[in-house]
Computed example of a mutant assay.
Amino acid sequence: MSELTAFILVKTRREWLDLTVPERINAFETAVLPTVRDRVSNVRSRFYDTEFYSARVTDIWVWEADDHESFQLVIEALRETPFWDHYFDIAEILVGVENGYAKHYGTETPTTINA
């Protein structure tokens, strides 16, 4: 399990939308992936589209990191790519620890999922 999960809420900029889909994929594969992979090893990412539900936030980038330093390195790496403040505006970064309350108090984790 990851030490922390970060939700980076972003809003697409016109520069991103003006790219074709192949150009977007190429930009991600050449500008973001190598930069992050060269600097960080203990992270995983997922991406969610929200533009059909929100005007303020168009996407949520979810990053799971094994430690706080790894997540810090992700942010440092992303800031040096065109994805930060060129293709996307960073609306908010929310970092959380899954079931932190239950872990802190040594209790069972309440869940709605039937095990």
Rank of each mutant, 00 (worst) to 15 (best):
E29Y: 14
L4M: 09
P34K: 12
L19K: 10
A91P: 11
V40E: 02
S45P: 08
E64L: 04
V95I: 07
E64I: 06
F7D: 02
H104A: 07
I93H: 07
T107Q: 05
S70Y: 02
T50S: 08
A102W: 03
D89Q: 06
R39M: 02
E23F: 11
I113N: 15
T50E: 00
E15T: 12
E29T: 13
W61Y: 09
G96W: 15
V43A: 09
T12C: 02
W84S: 02
W16T: 09
S2G: 06
S54Q: 05
E92Y: 08
A102Y: 05
D18W: 15
Y87K: 00
Y101I: 10
Y53G: 13
N42S: 14
E80T: 14
W84H: 00
L19C: 02
P110C: 02
E69W: 13
A27R: 00
P22Y: 07
Y53P: 02
I113L: 15
E80G: 15
S54G: 02
T20R: 06
W63I: 15
T5E: 04
L19V: 12
H68D: 11
V62S: 08
M1C: 12
I93W: 05
E3Q: 09
A31Q: 15
P110H: 00
T111D: 10
I25H: 07
L4D: 00
K103I: 00
V21G: 05
V62E: 12
T81L: 04
R13G: 03
T107R: 13
L78T: 09
I90C: 12
F83A: 07
F88I: 11
A91N: 12
Y53T: 11
I93R: 08
A27H: 00
P34Y: 05
E108V: 11
L78D: 07
F28S: 11
W16N: 06
I75D: 04
R44E: 13
Y87M: 00
S2H: 05
F7S: 07
G100E: 10
I75F: 04
Y48K: 02
A55I: 15
P110R: 03
D89G: 00
I60V: 10
V40H: 01
E23D: 06
Y87L: 02
H86E: 14
E51N: 09
W16Y: 09
A102L: 03
T107V: 12
V43C: 15
I90L: 11
N42A: 05
A102N: 01
V36N: 07
D59E: 00
P22K: 04
P34V: 08
G96P: 14
G100T: 06
V40T: 01
H68L: 11
E108R: 07
T81M: 06
P110D: 06
H68E: 10
S45D: 11
L4I: 13
L78G: 04
G100Y: 08
R44Y: 15
A6W: 04
R39N: 15
G106C: 01
W84F: 05
P110L: 08
M1T: 04
V95R: 00
V10W: 05
T107D: 03
R14F: 10
T107F: 10
F47Q: 12
D49R: 14
K103D: 01
W16F: 01
D66F: 03
V95L: 01
E29I: 10
S70V: 01
A6T: 13
T58Q: 13
S70F: 08
V21F: 09
